[in-house]
Computed example of a mutant assay.
Amino acid sequence: MLVDSHCHLDFPDFADDLDGVVARAGRAGVGIMLSIGTHITRHPQVLKIAERFEQVYCSVGIHPHEAGTEPPATVETLLSLADHPKVVAFGETGLDYYYDKSPRERQRDSFRIHIDAARRAGLPVIIHTRDADADMAAILEEEMGQGAFTGLIHCFSAGPDFATTALRLGLYLSASGIMTFKTAESLRETLASVPLDRLLVETDSPYLAPLPHRGKRNEPAYVALTAARLAEIRGISSAALAEATTANFLRLFSKVRR
């Protein structure tokens, strides 16, 4: 069984085809999908999809792009929303200095609030980071010093130095369709060296479709293509990669029913 550890099933791209998307994922061997929250104000829609499909779980959080426009979340609000059995993580949250769609201070404040909620609840935090490695590493180091928490660097696309920092802090890394792109050789080299027990796979669908679907709508079924490429660069079978990444997911997202 494979797990798509990061998709956005509430996005309009799937509105007219959600049953088909979920069915195709199942036929591709994807047994669990984690649909990620990006807006507190849209959490009811995310949760409704998770309640509708047995194999779909969800998270609650505010994407860094939305940190300047969403009502600021409190730790108490996040903890309350995470009390639902289908809500298994916080985020996605983090820092995005590439697009800078929200003030950086608001991004940092929101990120720390999500980490605090994760620490208190004992649930993982799903971390988005782009062009912010120095600030991200500093916040992770500081917050881990305030008390341990678990988490995942989703759609990992940074270099080996940041990978080393994240792994040292006990975090997991998730490979997306980016690692199948022809220009991603350095990323493949980094992912080939990550301990197998700290790797997950994802689609980030509807974005970042792996080859040969690059440029088209992504969907959870395509996580099998990313997993196959990841298995290839690591020199193991697809079955072994699926077994390891699924075990890692269930260890990290411990609230998910086996």
Rank of each mutant, 00 (worst) to 15 (best):
M1E: 06
D4L: 03
D4G: 06
S5Y: 04
D13G: 11
D13M: 08
A15G: 06
A15V: 14
D17Y: 15
L18A: 02
V30H: 01
H39V: 05
H39T: 09
T41I: 07
P44D: 02
Q45D: 15
V46K: 04
L47A: 07
Q55E: 13
S59H: 13
I62K: 00
H63N: 03
E66M: 02
E70C: 10
P71K: 12
P71S: 06
T74L: 06
V75F: 03
V75R: 15
D83A: 15
K86T: 13
V87T: 04
V87D: 00
V88M: 05
G94R: 00
Y98Q: 13
Y99D: 08
P103M: 09
D109M: 15
H114I: 01
L123T: 00
T129D: 04
R130Y: 03
D131N: 11
A132Y: 11
D133V: 02
A134H: 07
I139M: 05
I139Q: 04
E142W: 02
A148V: 12
A148G: 14
A148K: 13
T150Y: 15
T150D: 07
I153S: 09
H154P: 05
C155P: 10
S157E: 08
S157H: 02
A158C: 12
G159S: 11
G159W: 05
G159D: 13
P160Q: 13
P160I: 11
D161T: 13
F162K: 01
F162Y: 14
A163E: 03
T164Q: 14
T164C: 14
T164I: 06
T164H: 15
A166C: 12
L167M: 09
L169Y: 03
L173F: 12
L173G: 03
S174E: 03
S174L: 02
I178W: 03
M179Y: 03
M179K: 05
T183D: 15
A184P: 07
E185L: 15
S186G: 14
T190F: 15
S193R: 14
P195R: 08
L196D: 02
L196V: 12
R198H: 08
L208F: 08
L208N: 08
P212Q: 11
R214T: 07
A228G: 11
A228H: 12
L230R: 03
E232V: 12
L241N: 01
A242G: 09
A244K: 05
A244T: 06
T245K: 02
L250S: 06
R251N: 14
R251C: 09
L252H: 04
R257E: 09
R257V: 09
